[in-house]
């Protein structure tokens, strides 16, 4: 959650708590008179307005704090993976989502169960040798 959304939510909560408290105080103070007048007491308009406004503020704060929504359409979602990579799937604090895995179909091309480990080792050793050569050349 960003600071903005936190501020909104806290402010809204304080206002809502205040509205609740006011409503309670109002009914406590007014109940003897109301029983005397034999009718129900409606809350004053300012308390009602405060309740509604505070609820709206809380909702705004929570909505601001949600993660960006994920694309619904397949091609948009797939395009996002290709175009942005892991960067496109972060939460507000910049951490990559736990369930992000890139293109889920890339295993069909990398095929980890059929990996030719000896070839990979050879290639890696070759790469190391090249790198050493470059380093020695400098």
């Amino acid at each position: 959650m960003t600071i903005l959304s936190k501020t909104f939510t806290v402010l809204g909560s304080i206002l809502l708590a205040h509205a609740c408290y006011s409503a309670r105080e109002h009914t406590t103070l007014q109940s003897p008179r109301a029983t005397a007048a034999a009718g129900s007491v409606s809350l004053p308009v300012d308390i009602i307005i405060e309740t509604i406004v505070s609820t709206v503020i809380i909702i705004t704060g929570l909505v601001l704090g949600t993660k960006p929504l994920r694309p619904l359409e397949w091609r948009v979602w797939a395009g996002k993976i290709e175009r942005e990579g892991a960067e496109g799937f972060t939460d507000n604090s910049g951490k990559v989502d736990r369930d992000f895995m890139g293109n889920p179909f890339s295993v069909l091309e990398s095929r980890p169960n059929f990996v030719d480990i000896r070839k990979q080792r050879r290639e890696f050793a070759e790469w190391l040798r090249q790198k050493d050569k470059v380093l020695q050349g400098q």
Partner: peptide
Amino acid sequence: IELCDDYL
């Protein structure tokens, strides 16, 4: 391309 926008 139809399945993936901007697929290089």
